[in-house]
Nucleic acid binder design. Structure first.
Length: 414
RNA sequence: GUGAGUGUAGCUCAAUAGGUAGAGCACUGGACUGUGGCUCCAGUGGUUGUGGGUUCGAGCCCCAUCACUCACCCCA
């Protein structure tokens, strides 16, 4: 019987784990300079928080959630996204009593029961940030700027930032009506999916890739024209600050977000180098989610980066993948014991030290040292023990020197 | 959930008209009693995804099933 990982769930092995670590280190460092603090959240939550926030009729809730009953009969769900759990925690711990705005980030797995394909798995990882407690447009711009700087710092260049505003609870319904009116008499031209979307989520028709649909929606009203006065001012300010910060971006009124809680600013980072799933990060403002969850009437904004989607965009491995500082070759039982002790002492000094564990010839130990990329080899044999000295060989320039059988002397020599 | 493609060694792939599975890389060891990379040699490793069927005989043909991949839907 051979066991396998579940469909859409992957092991992440070295050396890829080094890229993951690198990405997390860079993210944390960038976020720190903006004042973000880490928050660690459960990956399992009461089912209701997702239904209430993401939206009852969204695909995520209708067919993609890992939902089951626990032994106490509660309906629980592996989180399909992070904002709802974050808002739950924010309110539960009264974090709005901290100085405003509150800035947090979290890193971890999300779960969606979907058919896997390039850039999509059932367990996937996100690096996400959330800012609560302010409506200030500068934050919208700053969040997008931080995201762009993060990509720059990890060396991802082939990306485009798309921004739009989808209005608020007042103006969006008006736009929906106007859009449906415009599309109504052309409905027979559209593909089957779009016909279905017309009733469920007409905004999504704007995102359809079918050529006839693209032509048919030509001249449709733009969400931006329908923004109410406040939303319009807000969006114009976002654009102003993005320009001020010199963030290259595209205004895409057809940008569609899948989650119901978004209001006003939404944005997406795409890469043309990826497959059909080309969004590497996405986010937006959520104006009333906190209040709907029983918290104070504060607005929030955040984004999530899909780690698996960014990985293929990072060119080459960071050079942290080196070899051991020292490889100890030993010959004979006494030498093996002395080497074991010496290794522990050297490690205590912060060095990466490997041993030739299996009794084998010096040749074979040397070969092993070479294969794993050891920088130095120390030979401990009978002669050396007798003289209480060791031979240190630099593997790169092949030079050999002698040193006293002593940690300090060895460190000084290498 | 829908559609298409692919399944042979750890990895990349061979196997002519169906005749009983091979190479390179990797790994381990040797040539070189205590010195790596190069070279040469050897070894480990496969019920050809699985189960049926056709056939004297199936990696190859047929059916089913599973897995993986890509795309749709949808999304990070």
């Amino acid at each position: 019987m051979k066991f396998k990982a579940l469909k859409g769930v992957h092991d992440i092995l070295p050396p890829e784990t080094y890229i993951w670590q690198h990405m997390e280190v860079v993210a944390k460092e960038v976020f720190r300079t903006y004042g973000y603090k880490e928050i660690r959240l459960p990956i399992i939550e009461p089912t209701d928080i997702f239904i209430r926030s993401i939206g009852e009729t969204t695909d995520i809730v209708e067919k993609e959630m890992y939902t089951f009953q626990d032994k106490g009969g509660r309906s629980v769900t592996l989180r399909p996204e992070g904002t709802a759990p974050f808002v739950r925690a924010f309110i539960e711990h009264n974090l709005y009593n901290e100085p405003s705005p509150q800035k947090y980030y979290y890193i971890g797995p999300m779960f969606r029961y979907e058919r896997p394909q390039a850039g999509r798995q059932r367990q996937f990882y996100q690096i996400a940030v959330e800012v609560l407690g302010t409506d200030d447009v500068k934050v919208d711009a700053e969040v997008i700027s931080m995201l762009s700087i993060f990509f720059k710092k990890i060396g991802v260049k082939d990306i485009e930032i798309e921004v739009t505003s989808i209005g608020c609870g007042r103006c969006r319904p008006e736009y929906k009506v106007a859009l449906k009116n415009f599309l109504k008499d052309k409905l027979n031209i559209f593909c089957d999916d779009c016909k279905r979307r017309y009733d469920i989520n007409p905004l999504r028709i704007l995102d359809c890739k079918v050529k006839t649909c693209i032509d048919a929606r030509e001249g449709s009203p733009s969400v931006i024209e329908f923004l109410c006065k406040d939303c319009k001012v807000h969006f114009n300010d976002v654009r102003y600050y993005l320009r001020l910060l010199g963030i290259e971006h595209i205004i895409n009124p057809n940008l569609v977000r899948g989650l119901d809680y978004y209001t006003r600013t939404t944005f997406e980072v795409k890469s043309p180098l990826l497959g059909a799933q080309n969004a590497v990060a996405a986010g937006g403002r959520y104006g009333s989610l906190v209040e709907e969850f029983g918290g104070p009437p504060v607005s929030g904004i955040g984004f999530a980066v899909g780690i698996e989607r960014v990985i293929p965009l990072i060119k080459g491995l960071p050079s942290i993948w080196g070899g051991p500082d020292i490889f100890l070759c030993s010959l004979g039982k006494e030498a093996e014991e002395k080497s074991l002790l010496l290794a522990e002492q050297l490690r205590g000094e912060g060095l990466w030290v490997e041993l030739g564990y299996d009794k084998s010839s010096l040749r074979s130990q040397m070969r092993r040292a070479d294969r794993i990329g050891a920088k130095n080899v120390i030979v401990v044999g009978e002669d050396e023990l007798k003289k209480q000295r060791v031979i240190i060989k630099n593997m790169k320039d092949k030079n050999e020197v002698e040193a006293a059988f002593d940690v300090k002397a060895i460190i000084k020599t290498i």
